[in-house]
């Protein structure tokens, strides 16, 4: 189970959505896809599922083109996944015809967990119920590549937590390549083995989470001490308040232990903040 993008480019009119995007994901793994709004995440995910053609470049999913073999991939979007006039029962039926590894018994168990009745029509579902149906179809598809793009619009904290439990349970039951794109990064970061960040249509980084955490930290001290420690090297973010400065550093050249010996306070940077500052510094954006 793998996904490979090689120099994939896509324009919508004058807008460049993907700009020579290249990466390889090898499963089984739970991978987080992160990036700002408009970074190209949803376009890339739709290409993996064979829903959007690239202008240039090649895409290989599980050894074949997703445009020839779309049923290798199950993509659940944040909404509009299912025909409005279908009942839930009919929705499951059509999914069972499309996905070769479909597990009807598991699908029905998941429906119960989300308190969904099979007779209900898709158009009568609330946002949260529709998300529950999306999660049900994604997990029960048992597709070698299963993608959730913001799968939990309208789900409350308890239901999201249930989704995380289910994702881990299903991953252990049947290891697959799960790709999860979300803006609730702090909540979901513990689930990821790898994260990849897309910025302005290109790959900004692809790293396993534990390495990423160890490669980044913040240092706090007097302005003078922090400036001395940085020694002319640029942090990804710096802020000052009341005579003290905090700098966020990222990269293998920084050593947290060394910073502590300088009598600076160090702290870890949550993945969410790291993503925000990395995408800021790469736009030359706000200070």
């Amino acid at each position: 189970m793998n996904v490979q993008f090689d120099n994939v480019t896509k324009k919508f009119g004058s807008q460049t959505a993907l700009n020579s995007l290249s990466f390889t994901l090898n499963g089984p793994k739970i991978v987080g896809l992160l990036g700002r709004n408009g970074a190209g995440k949803t376009t890339a995910l739709n290409m993996m599922a064979g829903c959007i053609f690239p202008d240039n470049g090649s895409i290989v999913v599980n050894g074949s083109s997703p445009f020839a073999q779309p049923n290798n991939v199950c993509l659940i979007n944040e909404s509009g996944n299912f025909k409005k006039d279908f009942s839930i029962k009919e929705t499951l039926k059509s999914a069972s015809l499309f996905y070769p590894n479909w597990d009807q018994k598991r699908a029905e168990e998941l429906l119960d967990l989300f308190h969904l009745k099979k007779s209900k029509k898709v158009k009568s579902l609330s946002k949260g119920m529709e998300s529950g149906l999306g999660i049900t179809v994604g997990l029960a598809s048992y597709s070698p590549v299963t993608i959730f793009d913001e799968p939990y619009i309208g789900l409350d904290a308890a239901a999201r937590s249930r989704f995380y439990d289910l994702l881990i349970e299903e991953y252990e039951r049947q290891p697959r390549l799960f790709i999860l794109s979300t803006h609730l990064i702090d909540e979901a970061a513990k689930l990821f083995e790898d994260v990849f960040i897309i910025h302005k249509g290109a790959l900004l980084l692809h790293q396993d989470v534990e390495t990423l955490r160890s490669m980044s930290f913040s240092i706090t001290g007097t302005k003078k001490d922090v400036t001395e420690y940085l020694n002319g090297k640029a942090p990804i973010h710096r802020k000052e308040f009341a005579g003290r400065a905090t700098a966020y550093v990222y990269g293998s050249e920084w050593n947290r232990h060394e910073a502590e010996l300088y009598r600076l306070d160090t702290d870890s940077i949550p993945i969410q903040e790291l993503m925000v500052h990395l995408t800021d510094s790469h736009t030359g954006g706000k200070k």
Binding site: I168, E172, V209
Partner: peptide
Amino acid sequence: TNEFAAHYQINPATAAK
């Protein structure tokens, strides 16, 4: 590994590590 992963909602590979 699986018990740790389920209890803390973490990636099983991380627990295994």
